[in-house]
């Protein structure tokens, strides 16, 4: 309380009606408004990033803190482990498929809703609702649906399917190229998790696309129509190029969500057989809090952070530059 009243007392009586004084009060108020969140961010985000980095170079791999430098040992341990190599393969495959599927499904739904249909609000809500559900709930429900012996397979069986898919229990990797300790390819088990993830997040892509579609001016569309362009020409030459900014936004936000994914995997499949559905976040949690290997857990966290930064930083630079231009 003390600081605020003191500063306040100082600034008020001395304030003449000059322009400069008014400016400084504005400065003060904006700085004072920002300081608490700056301090909180500084400590709880950037401070802890620094701390985690420090720990990742230490020898703290039991309950007894040991901050002697380990150099890059923890990094070399995790990169040479079967589990982390699988994690990297999985996260790349998962993120790529997740984003492509969300974009296609989201755009398709947005286009359907944008046809001036009846009860638009109703359908919009229906497609958006999965996003309101927690990833844990989605994971549990889909693990029941896709359980090979009790779930959707019973329906397929009733329709006379002979070779039923084993969904997230599959151990197939396609195309299965050996690399390091692992096989490179698309783990089929991961596709089952993707179904759940896309089900949940494509509504988000739809909502953003819908806003983008509404932003395209009718004049351009009208002009194209007068020039005689058909539905497909209109979509690929007019609408799609106009949605480029929207697509970038969706990609960035979904990438961040995808790289951090934890709850869905934890609830639905766990690490999976041969770590076919494991993710760096899950590995980090188990290494740190079940194995007490804090330094190795920190190293995984830092690698994960760098991966996210690769996607986020260029986006931030572009957005900030646009902000300056405006």
């Amino acid at each position: 309380m003390k600081t605020a009243t003191e500063l306040n007392a100082k600034s008020i009586p001395k304030m003449p009606a000059s322009k400069r004084k008014k400016f400084s009060w504005d400065m003060f108020s904006s700085v004072a408004t920002l300081i608490p969140s700056l301090i909180l961010l500084g400590v709880f985000v950037y401070g802890f990033i620094g701390w985690t980095t420090y720990v990742s170079f230490s020898q703290w791999n039991s309950l007894i803190p040991n901050f002697n430098s380990a150099g890059f040992l923890n990094y070399s341990i995790i990169f040479s482990s079967y589990r982390f190599q699988s994690d990297l393969r999985n996260i790349v495959v998962f993120t790529a498929f997740f984003i492509i599927a969300c974009l296609i499904v989201g755009l398709f739904l947005a286009l359907l809703i944008d046809q001036k249909i009846k009860a638009e609000g109703f359908f919009r809500s229906i497609f958006l609702f999965p996003m309101a559900i927690s990833f844990v709930v989605t994971g549990v429900v889909w693990s029941w649906i896709l359980n090979p012996s009790t779930g959707v397979n019973l329906i397929l069986k009733a329709f006379g399917w002979k070779s039923l898919p084993s969904w997230f229990l599959s151990t197939t990797i396609w195309p299965n190229w050996p690399f390091g300790q692992i096989q490179i390819g698309i783990p089929v088990a991961l596709l089952a998790v993707l179904i759940a993830a896309v089900w949940q997040m494509s509504g988000f892509a739809m909502a953003v696309y819908l806003a983008g579609l509404r932003g395209i001016s009718d004049e351009i569309k009208e002009a194209a129509r007068i020039d005689g362009s058909g539905v497909f020409r209109m979509f690929f030459s007019i609408i799609l190029p106009q949605l480029r900014g929207t697509t970038t936004t969706i990609i960035i936000i979904l990438t961040a969500a995808s790289l951090k994914i934890f709850g869905l995997i934890y609830a639905m499949t766990g690490p999976g057989q041969q770590f076919l559905t494991d993710m760096p976040s899950l590995n980090m949690f188990q290494t740190t809090f079940q194995g007490d290997q804090f330094a190795q857990g920190a190293a995984i966290a830092i690698v994960l952070l760098l991966m996210i930064a690769i996607f986020i930083v260029p986006y931030l630079i572009v957005t900030l530059r646009q902000g300056d231009d405006a």
Binding site: K2, T3, A4, L7, T33, P36, I39
Partner: peptide
Amino acid sequence: IALSSAALLT
């Protein structure tokens, strides 16, 4: 806002 946030901080 400035006052209250400064107060909160202290």
